[in-house]
Amino acid sequence: MNMTISREDVEYVAALARLELTEPEIQEYTEQLNSILDYAAMLERLDTDDVVPTAHAVPIHNVLREDQVRPSINHAKALRNAPDGDEGFFRVPRISLT
């Protein structure tokens, strides 16, 4: 297998995604990600010189709405799924790690 993704890459991406991985998980994901990339590498054999880069999977553009105010939802609805809230505010735990 072509090892495009190193274990450092996996650790880095996991840290960005705030995931804590065990040693076996790091190994497993490194292998899996490489295998996925290897599979996708098949595409590199195609000649894409005349193909326009794809910005979106669906071939549509300019889906727009007019600038007209629509009703918002109320506090209670907005906060219904929030783990914590207070007086109409969402409340989040400590942000700074320092």
Binding site: L64, Q68, A78
Partner: peptide, 29 residues
């Protein structure tokens, strides 16, 4: 379509789109 009016009581100018609720779809103004 939530108003952009300045001020307003907290979290009253919100909807599933600007709150990032799963499944809500943005449409450009």
């Amino acid at each position: 379509g939530c108003t952009t009016e300045f001020g307003g009581e907290q979290n009253t100018h919100v909807c599933p789109v600007c709150l990032g609720m799963p499944g809500a779809l943005p449409v450009l103004n």
